[in-house]
Design a protein around this nucleic acid. Sequence first.
DNA 1: CGTCGATTTCGATGGCTGTCTATACGGAGA
DNA 2: TCTCCGTATAGACAGCCATCGAAATCGACG
Lengths: 113, 113
Amino acid sequence: MEPLDLLECSPPLMREPLDAERAAGVARVFKALGDPVRLRILSIVASRAGGEVCVCDITGAFELSQPTISHHLKVLKDVGLVTSERRASWVYYRLVPETLGELSALLDVPAPV
Amino acid sequence: MEPLDLLECSPPLMREPLDAERAAGVARVFKALGDPVRLRILSIVASRAGGEVCVCDITGAFELSQPTISHHLKVLKDVGLVTSERRASWVYYRLVPETLGELSALLDVPAPV
DNA sequence: CGTCGATTTCGATGGCTGTCTATACGGAGA
DNA sequence: TCTCCGTATAGACAGCCATCGAAATCGACG
């Protein structure tokens, strides 16, 4: 599943109606963010100083099974919000700030009028 | 359903891990945004000059039944992304820029480092 | 007061999603 | 090579969601 190139060249924000294709792409990312567990996972990754988080650090923060965490990480990865890298036995996840930045710009409302 | 007061006082952004309660509240809004039709509806409302859109204007832009559009509008309204006002026979929807602004701030990543 | 048009609500249905258990994979070390 | 540990995948199940048609509601207007 391609990591959502649809976001690549985002028109400033909600100044003009999204066409169906772009909307579908953006919706994929928002859908990924629409789960409390994934939001918390993302915030853990984003707030980590070094920028990297080991999976084992994430599973420890939840009372969910390890496969469930792995599933959520895959969802976040599929939409381009995080990347992963294996080193030794551990897999480290890292934020993709560009994707978040695109979303933030898309939602940014300049002024009430 | 309360229009998500959880967002009211948003800590800057993803600087510290979201607690479960806040994550649940924010996830509700993102889940609402995680549908292509709702995204397009929202962009139609947001991009409209006067700031107001009649339901009839929205239904015309989709090949969906009118009740379906109404359902999506209710979802957007329940999470505080839009408000509605009835005038005469028509109901007009209007953007709530504060909610979008909160989300935008939440996702905003200051700098890669 | 009755009708009409616009919108919402209701009930049902098919598909998607979050979660689990069990299993497989991949690297490290003995 | 064998085993252990960390992680990913597969399959299954329950609950939620998008959608629809039908019916109810709500204003306006005779």
